[in-house]
């Protein structure tokens, strides 16, 4: 942080050269397509391929046409639920696991860490397939397992009912990605100097109070970062829902999130022809939601976080 640029020092050409490849690639594959998506959302495309400027028409349609707004609000609501479940389940469990892993006398640490992180590295198609099999009321092991605890009727069709599908898929996603908050927070916890904890223990604290009073306040910035990463990832989520429930995200759109709504709109589905300009509008709105979320985080939360020099 000490490298404040001094006035009068010569222009550092080498910095520019070093940055150039990244800037070029980033602009070509991220910034340009993003701008083009925003542009496309202001056009309308006829079936014969003719494009015309439409102003805000697409946005007005999404918010005022009853069919579009129902779908959009439903997807947005489901997406918030999806995010909420990750925040309430994935991140606390991630912190908890990281805290356990950082306990000084725990054996087989690396084994646990690898095992918990493993699902994160698997393809989402495999995850979807495995869980569909486990939860299948027809052949699933879940059926046998719940029989052991007295549920003789077996598993209800968790992935087939309107009330349970989204919740089940969220928890599957939590299971897959819990390794990421765990790793990030574990890394932060390793940075907490042992002296601080030792001093606290000498003063009479046990591991429990040491965690709450010493470690947690020190890792809060990481927790906040994990939260915002969760937010961004969840509002771009698509693959698991698509892999398990398809683009119609059934039953009755109960597992529809922004990503599946976008896919269905942009590419079309079955006999439904794709609509690139409406799709771009949905994508722009997704971008806007994420942008707002990240802004709120940057201005309302990150500035208030207290950082400690360790």
């Amino acid at each position: 942080m000490a490298s404040q640029s001094n006035k009068g020092s010569p222009f550092k050409t080498h910095l520019f050269v070093f940055l150039l490849p990244a800037v070029l690639i980033y602009s070509a594959f991220m910034i340009l397509p993003l701008i083009d998506t925003l542009r496309l959302s202001f056009y309308s495309i006829e079936t014969d391929g003719a494009t015309s400027f439409a102003g805000w028409a697409n946005y007005i349609t999404i918010f005022t046409d009853e069919r579009w707004s129902t779908d959009f609000v439903n997807a947005l609501k489901n997406n918030f639920l999806f995010f909420l479940i990750h925040m309430l389940v994935q991140n606390p469990i991630g912190i908890f696991l990281a805290a356990l892993l950082s306990l000084p006398r725990l054996k087989l640490k690396n084994t646990y860490r690898t095992l918990i992180f493993m699902p994160t590295m698997l393809s989402v198609v495999i995850i979807g397939f495995i869980w569909q099999l486990i939860l299948s009321p027809i052949w699933g092991v879940g059926d046998t397992l719940v029989g052991f605890v007295g549920m003789n009727d077996g598993l209800p069709p968790l992935l087939g009912e309107e009330s349970t599908t989204l919740l089940t898929l969220s928890l599957v996603s939590v299971w897959q990605f819990v390794g990421i908050p765990m790793m990030l927070i574990y890394a932060a916890l390793l940075n907490v100097p042992d002296d601080l904890v030792d001093a606290a223990i000498v003063d009479g604290a046990n591991q429990w109070t040491a965690f709450w009073r010493i470690k947690l306040p020190l890792i809060l910035p990481t927790v906040a970062m994990v939260s915002v990463l969760t937010f961004v990832a969840n509002f771009n989520a698509f693959d698991l829902i698509y892999a398990v429930k398809g683009a119609l995200a059934g039953p009755n759109f109960s597992s529809d999130i922004m990503g599946t709504l976008f896919y269905r709109t942009f590419f079309g589905f079955q006999l439904q022809p794709g609509n690139p300009s409406m799709g771009a509008t949905v994508a722009s709105l997704m971008f806007l939601v994420i942008l707002c979320g990240v802004m709120i985080y940057l201005y309302a939360i990150q500035r208030r976080l207290r950082r400690y020099q360790l």
């Binding site: 993003l34 998506t37 496309l40 690139p276």
Partner: peptide, 9 residues
């Protein structure tokens, strides 16, 4: 994260 939304275009 926006990349996903963008690839479509």
């Amino acid at each position: 994260a926006v990349a996903f939304a963008v690839t479509g275009a």
